[in-house]
Structure formats: structure tokens, C-alpha cells
Write a protein that binds this DNA or RNA. Structure first.
Lengths: 142, 142
DNA sequence: TTGTATTTCATTGTGCACAATCTAATTTCG
DNA sequence: CGAAATTAGATTGTGCACAATGAAATACAA
């Protein structure tokens, strides 16, 4: 029954570390009044002028049941606008408000701060990221 | 602003892969009527006759706000007993019922099934687990 | 011993995640 | 064209996570 020991599970450190990493981000994100998933949406929208809910979900591996209420909260706090597409009314486009765009300035330092708290080498960080991404991309999206 | 690109974040693949991994477990765990965090509690209790809520939280990095309702649900489904300690009434001990112990037989095959779905080498799996655990253990528990 | 601090768990409230279901819009195909 | 299938989001319900607070029991110090 060795496989059933917690120590022998890959998934557990993945699960635990993922939560602890978002806990590392939390104090920084609180200053911007963002949660970690909201921060991920902001990262996407700082890169792309306009994205549909579908596109955001595709990037973040999240479905509308998660994104719809999350984006509504972000709309309420004035970070994004949600616009029903006129050509295809099934689609909702999301884009940053002026305030949302300005928030980028306050977020610039976050990755460096997190990195320094981790105290691992840049090389190791990148190889780890690569390994995790490789596994992730092998898992089929339903 | 390169650091603010989704692709350059370590935390994102960690977050996304963690969720996708629990999604891999889901079909197997549904047959046992367990969620992934409940499965982690079962792993601990299959190894240890009796654990306090505190000890479970310490192992899984979860607090009572998460564990209390989770353990109550597991008590309702008949997997565990929750017993207030008589020597120190602040403590609640958790232990498996007969049914809970028997469930181990049905769970034995799960890790191998997950492993085969991942299609990565055993060596890579172990080194990855080790790296993640190392980072995790460097992060201070509050 | 008595007041204070600490420990352990429970409770409340908010925000994800995600399955299941629904609605409306669009596409496809006979 | 018109019915059936597909697609994009929204809704509902359940179960985590976790901050903040509270309550009760124990430890500890003066």
C-alpha cells in the first residue's frame, strides 16, 4: 500500500504548494484589492486589449461557472467592462477600464517580490515552470 | 513589463496543473464518493490510527475553517468518527470507522491509474515531487 | 491561586472551482 | 428554408479555502 502514503503522491505537494504560493501573493494583491484568479485575468487583459469569456477561460483553464461571477465582481469594482458582442450575441467581451489599465503600474513589482521570497535560483525556477507546463499541456482539455 | 506576462509566471502552471491533477483524480474518487481533500485526509488516516484536527491541518496545510466542515461531512457519510478528547477538551480526535478502513481496498489502484495517465517517467515524477516539496518546506508555516 | 496568555476548534462570510442544467444565438445540413 | 445540433454564457448547488472572530479549555506567571 506504499502508493497510498501521502509522501509518495506527486499531487499533494502540487496542491499544497499551489495554495501556499497564492498565499505568498496575497499580501501584495490585497493592496490592489485583487484575488489571485482576478490577478491572472488582469495579466491577460494587460496583454490583450479585448478578450471573450471563452478566451479567458481557455487561457486559465476555467469555465463560465467560475468566470461569470468573478468578472462581475471585477466589473463592480470598476476594473473591467463586460460588453455583449453585437455580431454574435452569445459572446461577452471583457476589456479593461482606464482604472484597470492604470493598475498595471502598481503590479509591476509583484513578480520580483515573490521571486525574492522564494529564494530559489532563476534557472531552477524556469526549469520547474517548464516541466509543469509540459505536463499541463499534455493533459487534454475537455 | 515582461514579468507580468502569464507565460513568465511560475505560479500559474502550478495553479492550473494542481487543478487539472485533481480533475484527473475526480472520476476515480467519485466512485468512492470522496473529494480530493477528503482523499488526502483518508490517506493520513489509513496511516495513522488517530489524529487531531490540528495534526491533520498541519500535514495538509489546512486550517480548522476548512477542516471542520469537511470532517463533519465525512462523519455524516460514515467514514470517520470525531471524538472530543477527554484529557484536553480543546482537542478533537478523528479516526476511521470500519467502513472508512475498508475503503482503502477500493483506493489501492488509484495512484497507479493516475501515473499511467500522466505518461511521464517515474524518475521525472520523483524529482518533480522532490523539487516541489523542497520549495513547500522552505515556505514558513504561519 | 488568580488573572493573562495561549491553544484548539467552531462559526461566519466571501470568493473561488466545477458539475449540471438552462437559455439564447448561431451553424449545419437535409 | 427549417429542424437539429452546436456554441457561449448564465444560473444553481455543493464543497473547498481562508480571513476574522469567538468560545472554551489549558498553561503559565506573578
Amino acid at each position: 500500500m506504499d502508493q497510498l502514503h501521502l509522501d509518495n503522491q506527486l499531487c499533494f505537494p502540487l496542491y499544497a504548494l499551489s495554495r501556499q504560493m497564492t498565499a505568498l501573493y496575497r499580501p501584495y494583491l490585497e493592496k490592489l484589492e485583487l484575488t489571485y484568479p482576478q490577478y491572472l485575468v488582469m495579466l491577460l487583459l494587460w496583454e490583450h486589449e479585448k478578450l471573450s469569456v471563452k478566451e479567458i477561460g481557455c487561457e486559465l483553464w476555467l469555465d463560465s461557472g467560475t468566470l461569470t461571477p468573478l468578472l462581475k465582481r471585477m466589473e463592480e469594482t470598476g476594473l473591467v467592462d463586460r460588453l455583449r458582442c453585437t455580431e454574435d450575441e452569445r459572446i461577452v467581451h471583457v476589456q479593461l477600464t482606464k482604472e484597470g489599465k492604470l493598475l498595471q503600474k502598481k503590479a509591476v513589482g509583484i513578480p520580483d517580490n515573490i521571486f525574492s521570497e522564494l529564494s530559489i535560483s532563476n534557472v531552477q525556477l524556469k526549469s520547474l515552470k517548464k516541466e509543469l507546463s509540459a505536463i499541463l499541456n499534455k493533459l487534454e482539455k475537455k
